[in-house]
Design a protein around this nucleic acid. Structure first.
Lengths: 118, 118
DNA sequence: CGGAATCCTCTACGATACTG
DNA sequence: CAGTATCGTAGAGGATTCCG
């Protein structure tokens, strides 16, 4: 008999899953960082992320837009240009990213130490 | 020409990726929570997580052990029993999980508001 | 320029059954 | 009890080419 059913922690699991959906995957974070760094146009972003293909970038941009993390803007030029920019909502991710980065570093150190001991 | 190359932020990307590797995926967090909740034995954990199969649980447990998040202990009984427990290192994940949960909640609210406006 | 179309591979995850 | 073995599926991501 299980001591505690996990159903009660849906209150934790669901939001965490929501958050992870937004930032996990191979490219999402790199795209966010690329735009945060000042790259606004499709090709600009594409070239700032080595290895990404236009198809994948396109999909990531759409995903991020659906999550209201970036805004797509059609510039009235000829030829038409597209500008992508982070929303205010996207900036609230900063703290999360920093925390993940710090824990990730600590984790890697921990692993290394354990490895040296054995 | 890209304004800023993403290579410089490997210092962020790599640790974040390390952290995400540990907690992303459909089951990792549920397993951690199940063990934190007091389930120690394989079958106990299995029954506390609806829908998980032994094969998948086994893989997750091995992954978590490799990351030094849980410890596998063979109990000297007959028949032999196995006990899984969180390490001290695993507890350092708490802050990360709470942050993800909070941001996830806030994110869901944000989405809902935007949806109502349109 | 900013994509869309097509085809492909690889890994996470699942169902079911079996074993020391 | 604590797993393995086998088979199968879906989706993420990749390579290449083409389009308005």
């Amino acid at each position: 008999m299980p001591k505690i059913q996990c159903s009660e922690c849906a209150d934790t699991l669901l939001p965490v899953r929501d958050a992870l959906d937004v930032i996990s995957g191979k490219w999402k974070l790199q795209v966010i960082i690329a735009i945060a760094a000042g790259n606004q146009r499709f090709t600009e972003i594409e070239r700032s992320i080595p290895g990404i293909t236009p198809k994948v970038l396109n999909k990531e941009l759409k995903d991020l837009e659906q999550h209201y993390l970036i805004k797509r803007q059609v510039l009235d030029t000829y030829p038409v240009m597209i500008s992508y920019q982070l929303t205010r909502h996207a900036k609230t991710l900063d703290a999360v990213i920093h925390m993940l980065r710090d824990w990730g570093k600590q984790h890697r150190n921990h692993i290394k130490k354990q490895y040296q001991q054995t």
